[in-house]
Structures are given as structure tokens and as C-alpha cells.
């Protein structure tokens, strides 16, 4: 009985994994923050630019590094290291801003995310993708990790960029000083 149950549970879990893998399979652009590698769905990525001069946005949380002028448009830049609670890194010649576009509260939003370096654009098969592990009770709310890609020995966290910076957080940006 018990083993039968366990087996069917396992089968269910496998089916879920397969379903998730099929949903997430596709092209990803991967980048590094410290040791870790992350992936962004390629359709969300508009372009990659070198580090321009950033104008600080006063009275906002640290991770909002400020705004830049992108061909006449003003775009906010998020330092993903600071957002993820890592230490700040002085820019190197690898440091870039990835411009991502996603929908926030029904509006298309373009935002820059500051990362250590861009690694590559890769194709992830359904079989290479696993659901995100439970990050343990009390750990940070990590629902912005859609899944985990495994390629050779590399582990790539696939990000839902819309969830990395949620509506709540944007509101918090606004209310930070109050």
C-alpha cells in the first residue's frame, strides 16, 4: 500500500516536472552575480548596454541605483546584487546593464538590471529544467525563481523578472521616505 502510494506520488511529481520543463523550455540569456548563474527568458531581454553614467534617485532603496538616459528615454536601473542582498561590487569592464521589458500592473515597463557579467544565450530543453527546490522555512521568499536549469555541472536559476520587482516593491519605492 504505502509503497504504491509513494510510487504514484513520485509519478505525479515527475509528471509535474515534465509539465514545468515543457512550459519553460526555450532560449535563455544567462548572466552572473558573484558565483551564481541566472537565466532570463530571451523574449524579455531588449538589449545589453555598457555602464553609462547613472543619476542617483534620492530617498529610494539602495537597490534602485538610479536612472539612465537611453537614447532620450529615462530608464530606471536596479542593482540585482543589492536587490538580492549581496554586497555591492565596484564596476568592472564586464559589468553591464540588461534592459528587460515586462508587464507591471498592466503596463509595459522597460527597466535596466545591473549584473556582473553576461555569460551566453542558451537553449534549455524540457529535460534540463527542474522545479525550484523548497528554499527552506524562513528563507527569503523565492517565488521569482521559475525553475532550475541543469547543464553539465552548471546550475542556472531561471528568473521571473516581473516577480523580482513586484508591484508592492515599486510602491515601496514610492513610499520609502514616508
Amino acid at each position: 500500500m504505502a509503497s504504491e502510494n509513494a510510487a504514484s506520488d513520485e509519478a505525479k511529481a515527475e509528471a509535474r516536472t515534465a509539465e514545468l520543463g515543457a512550459g519553460l523550455a526555450g532560449k535563455y540569456m544567462t548572466f552572473k552575480l558573484a558565483r551564481e548563474e541566472y537565466g532570463l527568458g530571451i523574449l524579455k531581454v531588449r538589449e545589453i548596454i555598457g555602464l553609462p553614467e547613472i543619476t542617483r534617485a534620492p530617498r529610494t532603496p539602495d537597490f534602485l541605483r538610479g536612472v539612465i538616459n537611453l537614447r532620450g528615454k529615462v530608464i530606471a536601473v536596479i542593482d540585482l546584487r543589492l536587490k538580492f542582498g549581496m554586497s555591492k561590487l565596484d564596476p568592472t569592464d564586464q559589468t553591464v546593464i540588461i534592459l528587460v521589458q515586462y508587464a507591471l500592473a498592466g503596463q509595459d515597463v522597460t527597466m535596466g538590471i545591473l549584473v556582473d557579467e553576461v555569460v551566453e544565450v542558451m537553449d534549455l530543453q524540457a529535460s534540463q529544467i527542474e522545479p525550484p527546490p523548497a528554499f527552506g522555512a524562513g528563507a527569503i521568499d523565492a517565488d521569482f525563481v521559475l525553475g532550475v536549469g541543469k547543464v553539465d555541472k552548471r546550475v542556472i536559476f531561471l528568473l521571473d523578472i516581473g516577480k523580482v520587482l513586484t508591484t508592492d516593491e515599486v510602491k515601496k519605492l514610492a513610499g520609502a521616505s514616508a
Binding site: 534617485a57 534620492p58 529615462v74 530606471a76 527597466m111 521616505s177 514616508a178
Partner: peptide
């Protein structure tokens, strides 16, 4: 005047300009 994308509001700032 350039409005800030993403509905980001910065306290005491009404917008940005190049």
C-alpha cells in the same frame, strides 16, 4: 520632461529630464 517608466515615483521628484 521625461516621465519615469514603471510607475516609479521618487519622493519630492516630479520627473526627470535629459
Amino acid at each position: 520632461i521625461k516621465s519615469l517608466d514603471a510607475g516609479i515615483q521618487i519622493p519630492f521628484v516630479s520627473g526627470a529630464a535629459i
